[in-house]
Design a protein around this nucleic acid. Structure first.
Lengths: 342, 342
DNA sequence: GTGAAAGCGCTAACAT
DNA sequence: ATGTTAGCGCTTTCAC
């Protein structure tokens, strides 16, 4: 079965020139001079025949595929996915690249197969996205495969990374509360996100806490408390706040480490008849859809998914892969959950 | 710069045989007999040298790339994304395929570019995912590019489609309520999801409503009402239920068309001091994370994202692309939001 | 059983 | 300024 597609040879025949000439014209090379007339004929023929280059053949020759691989552990499934992929795709498209997307599910064998598959297909570069800070370094990293780490840091110090600027975000979150006048009864819900799997907590947790602490110190404010709990569901926030409300001093403001925890906090506050923001101000992180759904709307520091994705691709394609940490700002989205203390 | 990768030629040299023989052995062809001894030498050499096939070269020759394209309009950004991609990826991986993922944002020019890019890279097939039921047919559909529609139907009747079995889900949702003993005061919140853009409503809406109506009729039950509203945020559910509560007859059970609406309903009920499920039972669709976060947990009919993704890929790779509609069952996830009427 | 040779569609050094 | 030719790494027909 012959390929029904039009090739350069067809165009050449049609235009009465050699394949080389067609190649030069079509690839738009300026270093070789082609007569205007021939160029016109070639372009005309290509257009008329509906010529499209066979990228596979081109890649075989040039070793460039105009594809990049985005492989994540489990990120791409969660809500994290959409924005990251979207941003990456946008940036890729702007530079005429296509995106392979894959997910390892944190299974080494799967990761192995996926990386192999991408390398065998000669991707121009790879982006490794991960939640866990303590990731092993990408199995197949080698100089010929430009690599960017997305959303986690490189412990080997050899790779460029793109991460949200968590610490600054932490500082800004507390700043919002300070700005509204809160100096007492400010509690953190969530903390470092310490779990059995990650006794030191999670990167985002540590950084956010650091930022919060720094901002508090700078303002001469003492946090009323930090409730460490699991961030994954509202349950942790719910329980933490219930405990808080059972205590002696009523909380005045909460920094919740993500929107889920904030949701749990809302639930607990509502049960106790406390109102947001009149009785308790709340600020949070993630700026997920949840934040806009809550009543009142939850002020939240956004994870800049799109920008992260974009930045990773831009960086990868920039060919400046010096092992630098690129911190993407996290914009805060103001809604109705913060008010001055009474 | 010579490619540093090991090629079949290297293996051949190392094993003292011709490139042809290597190709035969490595591609595992059974129709040509190769001496056991030569085979061993080749396999050994390949292993030793760390040979990996160059898929680009292979593709150029065979016209098969072992890649498939998943292009969606806007689906892939929403929460819809994760599961779909995951499922598709799983199925693809099982058959050694890689997945291009792209999103058109419903912009024709972008769609054009993406499809071109995929076709120029010789994808083995494409999956078109879409929210809108009234999608134009994929621009570049042609017999040489196997195509499957995901999550929407084909109005031309020429393409295979994979969709959730919305109607059955609608019937089952109402069935849950009937089973608990509800026969009166059963309201639907959300309806067909009619908007300016889609005056007839959305596919999912129409189908779910049909299923609900069918189940009601079969049980000889009359719905107390259907509140048409926008499904996209909890706001619609909140308002619809507030209106309901302002009426004469108190609602006893709600079928919410998605979890967001159900969330809004919960908010409205809570404000009126009504409790779920003691005063009002609620069932919903989507089974998003939200469903498990609500208090009490929301019984919800899941959208089988993973299975949809898997099915689309399996179908595409099965080469049985008869234009059939494949309906994937929607499992209901029971939680605490349903109780018998008082 | 094994190998020589052609060719997939394209690029690029080297002639002319 | 244009054409000739030799590959990129692989598969596959056809001789040996």
């Amino acid at each position: 079965m012959p390929s029904s597609r039009v090739t350069q040879a067809d165009v050449a025949r049609h235009a009465g020139v050699s394949r080389t000439t067609v190649s030069f014209v079509l690839s738009g090379r300026e270093d070789i001079r082609i007569s205007v007339e021939a160029r016109q004929r070639i372009l005309g023929a290509a257009e008329e025949l509906g010529y499209r280059p066979n990228l596979t053949a081109q890649s075989l020759r040039t070793r460039k595929t105009f594809t990049i691989g985005l492989v994540s552990d489990v990120v791409a499934s969660g809500n994290y996915a959409g924005g990251l992929i979207q941003g990456a795709l946008e940036a890729a498209l702007e530079r005429d690249h296509l995106l392979y997307v894959a997910e390892t599910g944190d299974v080494p064998e799967v990761e192995q197969r996926l990386l192999r598959g991408m390398i065998d297909r000669q991707v121009d570069g790879m982006i490794h996205a991960s939640m866990s800070t303590r990731g092993r370094r990408p199995a197949h990293h080698s100089p010929e495969h430009p690599t960017v780490l997305l959303n986690h840091l490189d412990q080997s110090g050899e790779l460029a990374c793109v991460v949200p600027d968590e610490e600054k975000a932490g500082a800004e979150a507390l700043g919002m509360l300070l700005e509204a006048g809160h100096r007492e009864g400010v509690h953190v819900v969530g903390g470092h996100h310490r779990t059995e799997a990650a006794p030191d907590g999670v990167h985002a947790g540590r950084e956010r806490m650091r930022g919060i602490a720094r901002a508090a110190a700078a303002a001469g404010v003492r946090l009323a408390g930090v409730a460490e709990c699991d961030w994954s569901t509202p349950e942790g926030g719910y329980r933490a706040v219930r405990t808080l409300l059972g205590g002696t001093a009523a909380p005045k403001a909460l920094v919740c480490c993500n929107d889920r925890l904030a949701f749990g906090a809302y639930q607990a506050l509502a049960e106790s008849g406390l109102r947001v923001p009149e009785d308790v101000s709340v600020i949070s992180f993630d700026d997920s859809e949840l934040a806009s759904w809550l009543r009142p709307g939850l002020t939240s520091v956004a994870i800049p998914h799109r920008e992260l994705g974009r930045a990773a691709v831009s960086l990868l394609l920039s060919d400046d892969l010096t092992p630098t940490i690129h911190r993407i700002p996290m914009p805060v989205h103001r809604r109705g959950s913060i008010a001055p203390p009474r």
